[in-house]
Design a protein around this nucleic acid. Structure first.
Length: 452
DNA sequence: TCGTGTCTGCTTAGGAGCGT
DNA sequence: ACGCTCCTAAGCAGACACGA
């Protein structure tokens, strides 16, 4: 009997490790497995019904041309010798990260939204775990020093959590005399301003707020999903708008006209209309989103929502003193100072004025203390992907019911929701003995409390 | 109609630094 | 000391629109 195993989303290259195991496993059971046919391309009439092993004792079930193949993942993983703490049905298996060696061609610098100089490795493209890796972050100069990687080195590359490319370190035995120690630049590679490294901090900053790189990062941050969420405006268009001088700061987006947009290369009527309506729609985002979008240092999505709920308007926030700010729980002196400073800067105030004139919502009712939901006081963490909804949606539901959703597992975490291909959070949860929830159980929980 | 460019959606690691 | 948030990073398929 021939079995074709079909996995969505992997058109090329090797299968994810768990999938590989499944192939072998089916083989062991006496099926002839044809992994080559199992590619995403060109497969017709093969449907995948793939119940996750995270579901308690649920069968793994493949339907192939009307033939249903069932198997028990519990036994499968047990046979592999991969048995974690209870409940064992949630144990997933991953190979250790697959590594490869390649050449470090150079180290280049990105400028972050806050002006940080972020070095990254430019690598000779290499296949690692099924994808081509050509770049990887090096975090900062200390990290480069710790790893002691030099330009020209042969380096080991892996995919952390099987996803993110990472430089592990050099293969010192392969080092030739021609390697070069990397030196962080003294000047911003984009605007040439001498960089500063505040005492006690590890990152170097470009102190020029008008640096084009920072303007670009601010703009992309402003329009991003978590902030004002302007659909259709990605990095490329941000770049074009800045380069053409149509936009100098985020507030200028709101005075773009159709004529201006249509004049751009590869921007037609349709795109221009879509973009303008997306911009229009963004005027009504919740206050927290706007505060986040302003890009104040130390104010991310969480603190922004907190500030919105405390002050209720941009004006009230702008008037707040350092003491008032620091009096808020979880806001300390650094954050308070950062916020206060932001609203003392003339150009920032100019942007805010312009946003106001454009009709961007600047205030909202201060919500009464959030009603105590059924999940009040419970901390959730999600790992892996959920089939039924994006992670952000799941987190929204959790908050709606009064729970909190964070992204690192600690001893205080109450539940870890395990989706498909979970990462290291699952390991950590097992280590702490944190209660695990399969996607089905999670959905059941939401249903119980009427969230869905 | 079709090749090409752009954006979206979806994932996780981990250093740094803040708050308590 | 510990927990949490901020911030950035890479990759790829697929949807959609442009423009010839």
């Amino acid at each position: 009997l021939d079995i074709w195993v079909y996995q969505l989303g992997w058109a090329d290259g090797p299968y994810p490790p768990t999938h590989w195991e499944t192939l072998h496993w089916l083989q062991d059971m006496g099926f002839r497995v044809n992994p080559e046919i199992g590619r995403y391309d060109g497969l017709e009439g093969v449907e995948r019904h793939y119940h996750q092993w995270a579901d308690r004792r649920h069968d793994l079930e493949y339907e192939i041309d009307g033939l249903v193949v069932k198997a028990d993942p519990f036994q499968h993983y047990e046979r592999l010798g991969v048995v974690g703490r209870e409940p064992r049905w949630a144990t997933a298996y991953k190979f250790p990260p697959i590594q490869a060696t390649t050449k470090l061609l150079g180290i280049e610098i990105n400028i972050g939204r806050t002006g940080t100089l972020n070095p990254y490795a430019v690598l000779e493209p290499v296949q690692v775990g099924g994808v081509t890796v050509s770049k990887a972050t090096l975090h900062n100069e200390e990290d480069i020093r710790r790893k002691d990687v030099r330009v020209g080195d042969t380096v080991i590359v892996q995919r952390a959590g099987d996803v993110i490319p990472q430089v592990v370190g050099p293969v010192v035995s392969k080092r030739t005399g021609r390697v070069k120690v990397f030196v962080m630049p003294d000047r911003c590679p984009v605007c040439g301003t001498p960089v500063v490294r505040p005492e006690g901090e590890v990152m170097r900053y470009c102190p020029n707020p008008a640096c084009p790189a920072q303007a670009f990062r601010w703009l992309t941050h402003f329009v991003s999903r978590g902030a004002m969420d302007i659909e259709g405006l990605g990095e490329s268009w941000c770049y074009v708008l800045l380069e053409q001088g149509l936009v100098k700061n985020p507030a200028d987006i709101y005075s773009l006209t159709k004529e201006q947009l249509v004049g751009l290369e590869r921007m037609g009527e349709k795109s221009a209309e879509n973009l303008l309506s997306a911009i229009e729609a963004s005027k009504d985002r919740p206050l927290g989103r706007l505060i986040f979008a302003l890009g104040i240092r130390h104010v991310g999505s969480e603190i922004a929502v907190l500030l919105a709920s405390q002050f209720g308007s941009i004006d009230a926030l702008a008037r707040a003193s350092v003491e008032e700010l620091a009096a808020i729980p979880t806001v300390g002196p650094r954050i308070a100072e950062s916020v206060h400073q932001y609203f003392r800067d003339a150009s920032n105030l100019g942007v805010i004025e312009k946003l106001r004139r454009a009709g961007v919502r600047m205030a909202e009712e201060i919500a009464a203390a959030p009603p105590e939901g059924p999940l009040a006081g419970l901390r959730f963490v999600i790992t892996g992907s959920l089939a039924s909804m994006p992670r952000s949606k799941a987190e929204e539901f959790i908050r709606q019911l009064g729970g909190s959703a964070s992204d690192s597992v600690t001893k205080k975490t109450d539940y870890v929701v395990v989706g498909e291909s979970p990462g290291s959070k699952l390991r950590k949860a097992q280590q702490y003995g944190t209660r695990l929830l399969s996607e089905q159980e999670f959905l059941e929980l939401l249903r119980q409390h009427g969230a869905i």
